[in-house]
């Protein structure tokens, strides 16, 4: 039972992990992108559509990544080059992305033979949960850690790579410098614009894959026009919970995923709590984390100082 619960939590947490890792990359470079929901929606549609047409998992994920990059490019161009307000641009991206996915999703449904686009069987098989040979046979742990669909492993890998990149490489250091104090980074000879663009685009692409997970895996192979349904916003919350660290986000997404399936596993006759409580719990905990980090006033685990403010060299 516990194993089943944790297994479901990992499954539910993976799209959040993608969204969170993508948003961490974006925020670490000093841009708060509230368009995660929109980018995930676009990734969800394009990933599904590509899989639907080609049956290839690689192409589907690449396409989802590409459209996430495209969405982030709009955001980056407006906020970095044209210095538009980050909150407003992000919210607009969410409206646009949601509309984009639902509009083309609707048209895909209308064009499908029985008004319900289904993924080709071989793709569904490729996406199904498979135990890794040998490792998957270990009792309990095998089921828990080594019997997932392939995108789960991809998500964990990306989060680890991003974590190492941010904290252990020179490029990551430059990126953090830009996020904390762009003027100082600029004075040190870092190309602020380029650094911001690269990481916002990469972050958008990762969010796009998270969206594809929702449409490809969670939908059970059938397109659903509201497949993202607020997961992007939870990812934004999770960024705070994970204190801007992709590696902590792995654990964080597991916990948030656990919350989202908790109501199905808590024995109702022992603990009787309203369902709404479980759904609201991630947001409540995020607020508590937010308040505590601000009370400690530590730089560690806080939002990058330059976040939300557009950098203009002549503003001093």
């Amino acid at each position: 039972m516990i194993i089943n619960f944790l297994f479901a939590a990992i499954k539910a947490g993976t799209p959040l992990l993608f969204g969170t890792t993508g948003e961490i990359m974006t925020q670490k470079t000093g841009n708060l992108n509230l368009g995660v929901e929109g980018m995930m929606f676009m990734g969800a549609f394009v990933g599904f559509f590509t899989g639907y047409k080609t049956g290839s998992i690689t192409l589907a994920l690449l396409a989802a990544f590409a459209v996430g990059v495209f969405a982030a490019l709009i955001y980056a161009f407006l906020t970095v080059s044209l210095r538009a307000n980050q909150n407003v641009t992000g919210l607009t991206l969410t409206i646009f992305g949601t509309g984009f996915a639902q509009f083309f999703g609707e048209r895909m449904i209308a064009a499908a033979p029985d008004k319900s686009p289904k993924l080709p069987a071989e793709l569904v098989a490729a996406l199904s949960e498979k135990a890794i040979p040998l490792l998957g046979d270990i009792p309990y742990i095998g089921k828990l850690l080594f019997s997932h669909n392939i995108i789960v492993y991809l998500g964990v890998c990306i989060a680890f790579i991003c974590g190492i990149y941010i904290n252990r490489t020179k490029a990551g250091l430059n990126m953090r410098a830009v996020g904390e104090n762009p003027a100082a980074a600029d004075a040190a000879g870092i190309n602020v614009t380029a650094v911001k663009y690269i990481h916002i685009l990469a972050g958008g692409g990762i969010c796009g894959i998270g969206g594809a997970y929702l449409s490809l895996i969670n939908g059970g192979g059938v397109w659903n026009n509201s497949c993202v349904n607020g997961q992007g916003w939870i990812a934004v919350a999770l960024v705070i919970f994970a204190s801007w660290s992709p590696v902590k986000a792995i654990l964080g997404s597991l916990i948030f995923g656990a919350f989202s399936v908790l109501q199905f596993y808590v024995p109702k006759d022992i603990i009787e709590l309203p369902n709404a409580f479980y759904i609201a719990l991630p947001f409540l905990i995020t607020i508590i984390v937010l308040v505590f980090t601000s009370m400690k006033k530590s730089k560690e685990g806080a939002q990058p100082a330059g976040c939300g403010i557009n950098y203009f060299r002549e503003d001093r």
């Binding site: 709009i74 161009f77 407006l78 044209l82 538009a84 307000n85 407003v88 641009t89 607009t92 991206l93 409206i95 646009f96 992305g97 949601t98 509309g99 984009f100 639902q102 509009f103 609707e106 048209r107």
Partner: peptide, 18 residues
């Protein structure tokens, strides 16, 4: 589909923001 209004809203806003 009515969601075309969201796309239009998005495009129009992107341009105004720009």
């Amino acid at each position: 589909p009515t969601s075309v209004s969201d796309i239009l809203q998005g495009i129009i806003l992107f341009f105004i923001l720009g």
